[in-house]
Amino acid sequence: SEIVKHAEEALERGEFVRIEHNGRVIEIRNEEALEELRRWVEK
C-alpha cells in the first residue's frame, strides 16, 4: 500500500510519520509500529 511504503521510506531516513486513517491517528516511529500499520491497512 502507498501508506505503508511512505512510512517505510520515512523510517529508513530516520523520520517518523503520523498517519490519519478512518478517523484514527497512528504514529510510525519503529518497525513495531510499521507492522501495526500493515495489519491496520489490510483490514
Rank of each mutant, 00 (worst) to 15 (best):
Ile19Tyr: 08
Ala7Gly: 02
Ile26Tyr: 14
Leu34Ala: 01
Glu20Asn: 08
Val25Ala: 05
Arg38Thr: 03
Leu34Met: 06
Glu20Ile: 14
Gly23Arg: 01
Arg24Glu: 07
Glu36His: 08
Glu35Ala: 12
Arg29Asn: 13
Ile26Met: 10
Glu15Leu: 08
Glu20Ser: 09
Gly14Arg: 04
Glu27Leu: 12
Ile19Pro: 00
Leu34Lys: 00
Glu32Met: 09
Arg29Gly: 07
Glu15Lys: 07
Glu15Val: 09
Glu12Asn: 14
Ala7Cys: 08
His6Gln: 14
Glu20Leu: 14
Val17Tyr: 12
Leu34His: 00
Gly23Pro: 00
His21Phe: 15
Arg24Asn: 06
Asn22Thr: 04
Asn22Ser: 07
His21Ser: 07
Arg39Ser: 11
Val41Tyr: 09
His6Pro: 02
Glu32Phe: 09
Glu15Trp: 09
Glu32His: 09
Ala7Asp: 01
Ile26Val: 07
Leu11Met: 06
Glu35Lys: 08
Arg24His: 09
Glu35Met: 10
Glu36Thr: 10
Glu20Gln: 09
Glu42Lys: 10
Glu9Cys: 11
Ile28Glu: 00
Val25Thr: 09
Gly23Cys: 07
His21Arg: 07
Arg18Gln: 08
Asn22Met: 14
Glu8Asp: 02
Leu11Phe: 10
Glu15Gln: 10
Lys5Pro: 02
Lys5Cys: 05
Asn30Ala: 04
Gly14Trp: 03
Glu42Met: 13
Ala10Tyr: 06
Gly14Phe: 05
Glu2Pro: 07
Glu42Val: 08
Ile3Pro: 03
Ala33Thr: 11
Arg18Ile: 15
Val17Asp: 02
Ile19Cys: 08
Leu37Asn: 00
Glu20Pro: 04
Ala10Arg: 06
Arg29Tyr: 11
Ala33Val: 05
Val17Phe: 12
Arg18Met: 10
Glu20Asp: 06
Asn30Phe: 04
Val4Met: 11
Arg29Thr: 13
Val17Met: 10
Gly23Trp: 02
Glu27Met: 11
Ile19Val: 13
Leu11Ala: 02
Glu32Thr: 09
Glu9Val: 07
Glu35Gln: 10
Val25Pro: 02
Lys43Phe: 14
Glu36Val: 10
Ile26Gln: 02
Glu15Met: 08
Val17Thr: 08
Glu42Asn: 10
Trp40His: 04
His6Tyr: 15
Glu8Thr: 13
Ile3Val: 10
Leu11Asn: 01
Glu27Asp: 10
Arg38Val: 05
Leu37Ser: 00
Ala10Thr: 04
Ile26Arg: 02
Arg39Phe: 08
His21Pro: 00
Glu12Val: 11
Glu42Gln: 11
Val17Cys: 13
Glu9His: 08
Leu34Trp: 02
Ser1Ile: 12
Asn22Phe: 14
Arg18Ser: 10
Asn22Arg: 10
Glu2Tyr: 13
Val4Tyr: 09
Val41Pro: 01
Arg39Pro: 00
Leu34Asp: 01
Lys43Asp: 11
Ala10Leu: 07
Lys5Leu: 07
Arg24Leu: 12
Trp40Lys: 02
Arg13Met: 05
Leu37Gly: 00
Glu2Leu: 13
Glu27Tyr: 14
Val25Asp: 02
Ile26Asp: 00
Arg18Lys: 12
Leu37Thr: 00
Glu32Arg: 09
Ser1Gln: 13
Glu20Gly: 04
Glu15Asn: 07
His6Asp: 07
Ala7Met: 04
His21Gln: 05
Val25Phe: 10
Glu31Ala: 15
Glu32Asp: 10
Arg39Lys: 13
Glu35Thr: 07
Glu31Thr: 13
Ile19Ala: 04
Ala10Trp: 05
Arg38Trp: 03
Ala33Asp: 15
Gly23Val: 00
Glu2Cys: 15
Lys43Leu: 14
Leu11Ser: 01
Glu31Met: 14
Glu8Cys: 12
Glu9Asp: 09
Ala7Ser: 03
Ala7Glu: 01
Ala33Ile: 06
Glu32Cys: 10
Arg38Asp: 00
Val41Asn: 03
Val25His: 06
Glu27Ser: 06
Arg38Tyr: 04
Glu12Arg: 15
Ala10Gly: 05
Trp40Ala: 05
Glu36Phe: 12
Glu12Pro: 02
Asn30Leu: 03
Ile3Gln: 06
His6Glu: 10
Leu11Val: 05
Gly23Thr: 01
Arg29Lys: 11
Ser1Val: 11
Ile28Ser: 00
Lys5Arg: 13
Ile3Lys: 12
Arg38Lys: 10
Ile3Arg: 04
Ile28Cys: 04
Trp40Ile: 06
His6Val: 12
Arg13Asp: 02
Ile26Glu: 01
Arg24Cys: 12
Phe16Thr: 10
Leu37His: 00
Ile28Met: 03
Glu15His: 08
Ser1Thr: 11
Gly14Pro: 01
Glu15Phe: 08
Gly14Leu: 04
Arg13Ile: 04
Ile26Phe: 15
Glu32Asn: 08
Glu42Gly: 09
Arg38Ala: 04
Glu8Pro: 01
Arg29Val: 14
Val25Cys: 13
Val25Gly: 02
Phe16Lys: 06
Val4Thr: 04
Glu42Leu: 13
Glu9Pro: 01
Leu11Glu: 01
Arg18Pro: 01
Arg39His: 09
Glu32Pro: 04
Trp40Phe: 06
Ile26Lys: 01
Glu9Trp: 08
Glu27Arg: 04
Val41Asp: 01
Lys5Gln: 08
Val25Arg: 04
His6Asn: 09
Gly14Tyr: 04
Val41Ile: 13
Ala7His: 01
Gly14Met: 05
Ala7Arg: 01
Ala7Asn: 01
Arg18Leu: 11
Asn30Ile: 03
Arg24Thr: 07
Glu12Ile: 12
Ile19Ser: 01
Ala33Met: 12
Glu27Phe: 14
Arg24Gly: 05
Asn22Lys: 11
Arg39Leu: 11
Lys43Asn: 11
Glu32Trp: 11
Glu2Gly: 09
Lys5Ala: 08
Leu34Thr: 00
Val17Gly: 03
Val41Gln: 04
Leu37Arg: 00
Glu36Gln: 12
Lys5Gly: 04
Ile3Tyr: 06
Glu36Lys: 10
Lys5Ser: 06
Val17Asn: 03
Ala7Tyr: 03
Glu12Tyr: 13
Glu31Val: 14
Glu2Trp: 15
Arg18Val: 15
His6Ser: 10
Asn22Ile: 06
Glu27Ile: 14
Leu34Pro: 00
Lys5Asp: 03
